[in-house]
Computed example of a mutant assay.
Amino acid sequence: MSGTNSYFVPGYGISRTVIQNEIHYYCGPNSIVRPYTLQGRDGFLVTTSGPPLTQAQIEDLKISSREYEEKQSRIAGEATVFVNKPIAVHQRLRRG
Rank of each mutant, 00 (worst) to 15 (best):
V83P: 09
A76M: 13
G40S: 01
E78L: 11
Y7E: 12
Q91S: 08
S73Q: 06
P51D: 15
Q39L: 15
V89N: 05
I32Y: 01
G77H: 03
G13F: 07
P29H: 14
C27L: 01
A76L: 14
I32R: 07
L93D: 01
V9I: 13
V81W: 02
A88S: 13
P35A: 15
I19E: 01
G43M: 08
K85V: 07
L61V: 05
Y25Q: 11
G40K: 04
E78F: 06
P52Y: 04
E69L: 12
Y7S: 11
P35I: 13
G77Y: 02
I32D: 02
E78Q: 09
V33W: 02
E69S: 14
Y7P: 08
R16S: 15
F44P: 01
E78T: 06
H24W: 06
G77N: 02
A56R: 09
G28T: 06
A79Q: 12
E70D: 04
N30G: 05
H90N: 13
L38S: 11
R74L: 14
V89K: 09
T54F: 05
I32M: 04
I63G: 00
G40T: 04
R41A: 11
P29A: 15
Y68R: 09
T17N: 05
V18P: 00
T47A: 07
I87N: 02
Q72D: 06
I58V: 15
V89G: 00
V83L: 06
Y26I: 07
G13C: 10
N30H: 05
R16G: 15
L61K: 02
Y36R: 08
Q20K: 10
V89Y: 03
S73D: 07
V83S: 06
Q20C: 12
V9G: 02
N5L: 14
D60I: 05
S31H: 02
Y36I: 10
I87M: 04
P51R: 15
Y36Q: 12
N84H: 12
H90S: 14
V46D: 06
V46E: 02
V9D: 01
S31F: 00
I23S: 03
E59P: 05
H24K: 14
F82A: 11
L38G: 03
H24R: 13
I63P: 00
R66E: 05
F82P: 00
Y12W: 11
I75M: 11
S15P: 06
S73A: 09
R92E: 13
N84P: 01
S64Q: 15
Y68L: 08
E22C: 06
E69D: 13
A88V: 15
D42T: 10
R34K: 15
E70N: 08
T80D: 12
L93W: 04
Y12I: 13
I14C: 04
V81S: 11
V89H: 04
A56L: 10
E69T: 10
T48V: 06
L45C: 07
R16E: 14
H24I: 09
Q39D: 15
N21A: 10
K71W: 12
I87F: 00
S31M: 01
T54M: 05
I58H: 05
A79S: 13
S31E: 02
P10M: 06
L38P: 01
T48R: 01
A56E: 10
